[in-house]
Design a protein around this nucleic acid. Sequence first.
RNA 1: GCGGUAUUGGCGAAGUGGUUAACGCACCGGAUUGUGGCUCCGGCACGCGUGGGUUCGAUUCCCACAUACCGCCCCA
Length: 427
Amino acid sequence: MRYQRPKGTADILPGDSEKWQYVEKTAREVFKTYQFKEIRTPMFENFEVFSRSAGDTSDIVTKEMYDFHDKGDRHVTLRPEGTAGVVRAFVENKLYGPQVLKPYKVYYMGPMFRYERPQSGRLREFHQLGVEAFGSESAALDVEVIAMGFNLLKKFGLNDLKLVINTLGDQQTRDDYRQALIDYLEPHFEELSDDSRARLHKNPLRVLDSKAPEDQKFVADAPSILDYLTPEAKAHFEEAKELLTALDIPFEIDANMVRGLDYYNHTIFEIMTNSKSLGQGYTTICAGGRYNGLVKELGGPETSGVGFGLGVERLLVLMDAESIEFPVDNDLDVYVVGIGDAANATTLKLAQAVRGAGLTAERDYLNRKPKAQFKSADRLNARYTMTVGDSEIENGVVNVKSMATGEETQVKMADIFADVKKVLRAN
RNA sequence: GCGGUAUUGGCGAAGUGGUUAACGCACCGGAUUGUGGCUCCGGCACGCGUGGGUUCGAUUCCCACAUACCGCCCCA
């Protein structure tokens, strides 16, 4: 094997590509019903677009970005996620302007890149579907986005789903809670894990997310952010919960759910599944939330946004594990069997006539014998075969066979050229 | 970036330090001189991920590298 694909990339071959098309098509249909429109942004952006949005500390920027300097010495990054590019486009195209209807609702789907160690469902080039809605603070929009993600997954046939929500409140809430958390954890500083010690002052919320056993016991009794919500933040969260209830969407609250990035606030959510295919216990398949700081961070006016992202590879792993059937049509209407060199042109013309009528047609290109051609026709699930050889050409006829019944009848070639569908209906 | 496991034909998969690397599927051909799904017969590994090393001799032992998978880190 001389060449192999780059580490962490995948070839999506026919057989799988149909599944991708189904997922993408379904997503487009669902998004359309919510009046989200597609946005397509570049696969790479200036490094700063992502380093700013991710808050250039963290491993994310230093370790996981696929960045490089191009021939013009521009520092660019293959997009690691969808939101930052969409926000950049929102700002650059001045979509915050008064003439643009709000909320501004878009979705995207496409490849993303992260320089990390590949595992099942986690590649260096992977794909996400995502949505963003800008310009409304309404909790109804939070809930609409959540409901859309939830319904999309249900549409895919997934049922063992759990919606978990939390709120990060507003800036005041975050400041207050951050301090409370530091005050609580500080006395136990020496007992915390290395990671958590490092994070305590940089991003104390992340300590809540720690999987280290030594941290767990402190996390269990840590103060809850829900006790630090300002009246406004509390009202927003209450409204979101009420609206979810009104839509009969069951949810759990996990006060320890956090986001690594600073720009998130108010409602955050994850849709989780218990499927073992993605790991032990509940794992997240779709995650999102509200973010207020990001538009401003990227140079726009203070504008709120809310959205979610969903990993397509993980979704497909999940759907396969749940034995979900993909509606794919691999049917072939007509296989044209040509016998002998003289039939070559006629075979082609017949195939073209079938295609011209909007049906699917295939033929042999390897000069194989009739038996082999019929075998192929069977393999391809052909509904009909049309057979032509020297005698048929001479008499201007074609043998049309229904593969299901095995019945074969002779029809005039001219009839096929005149109206293929009519001929097939009669057989 | 760290650790573990794996790598045999198009696919799945046995196997051994030593003259011919099982078997199954798929594919190709024949039995059926122009007709499928069944059956029978036959064919199908420039050789066991790549590169070194040990050895009289390695696909089988050792080392490095690559890739995949699992866990850690991370998960915007």
